[in-house]
Write a protein that binds this DNA or RNA. Structure first.
Lengths: 156, 156
DNA sequence: CTCAATCGGAACAAAATGGTCCGATTTGAG
DNA sequence: CTCAAATCGGACCATTTTGTTCCGATTGAG
């Protein structure tokens, strides 16, 4: 019932990327510097996040990274699934085999549980987590949904 | 985002124990035989489940195991927490340290997420998972909440 | 008092994860 | 056209956690 460190780091990295969107493209090295994570780890993360369609990478000189979608439309579930694959508590619900197989009375119930958990994580947008570290507290509540520089200027 | 095999096995074991309550005490060996799990693994599980107050073990000759509470009042969250400890997606929410510490903008939000997930799992009672393997389908719905032999006779 | 069956902890083996490094590919600038 | 910068992708190694097994200690019944 704990997600892998990579998934945790991915959430932090995406948050950092969300803060950068206003100032244009970022690099994996820059994100590593901001988050305090090792550079190679961030490189591995952005690879997976790009493959999942959450980040957009531009190669070559002067290249960089940017959010592929507005931060408001990226949820924690999206990030977790990008790194860890489908959200499934048990291996038997994800194609893996189980030794008890047919006589297992709980297996039919896992899909429902998984879906409930996924729904909970899907209801948390990235904007809700991207609040600045400590200072410049934006406003009591719901400020994240308004003051996101990514949503408007770059969506068109 | 996947719970450990032990936690998965614990749910299966508790389901098997729930079916046994009518016939009196069970042994770890009997549960292993029914679930198809290795005997030592079940022994380790019942130790943790007993320590958490979910199972009641009687030692000595003729001893055995039984549910400490009615199956309706045991949730999946209880079982998972008994085996894996507190439900927390990240280590930083469980006393562990984090390299980014103060400048992490997402950490304040984890407790809320963890609580939401725990609530989801806490809403699933053991009776809902203890339906018989395949045959003797009890009734279309809500039958599990009625036909549990554990709740009434032994609760008093 | 003896026997039987259990719990509890310790030790070992295995798999998965996390972290690191290097080569290949691509693009902008000179 | 050539060079340089920066990313992507894969392979390799160390660490940690997980999973399994075994053996001693404790308890109750006969």
């Amino acid at each position: 019932m704990r997600l892998s460190n990579l998934a945790d780091y991915a959430v932090v990295t995406m948050c950092a990327a969300a803060r950068h969107c206003g100032g244009g493209r970022t690099s994996a090295a820059a994100l590593a510097a901001e988050t305090g994570l090792p550079v190679p780890t961030v490189q591995k993360l952005v690879s997976k996040l790009s493959a999942a369609g959450l980040l957009r990478s531009t190669r070559g000189s002067g290249g960089g990274l940017q959010l592929a979608r507005p931060a408001a439309s990226i949820s924690v579930a999206d990030i977790v699934e990008a790194v860890e694959g489908p959200i499934a508590l048990t291996a038997c619900a994800d194609g893996g085999e189980c030794s008890v197989d047919a006589l297992c009375s709980v297996r039919p119930h896992w899909p429902m549980i998984n879906e409930a958990l996924r729904g909970t994580l899907a209801s948390i947008p990235l904007t809700q987590l991207a609040g600045q570290p400590a200072k410049t507290i934006p406003s009591p509540r719901s400020a994240a949904l308004r003051a996101d520089p990514c949503t408007m200027p770059r969506a068109l």
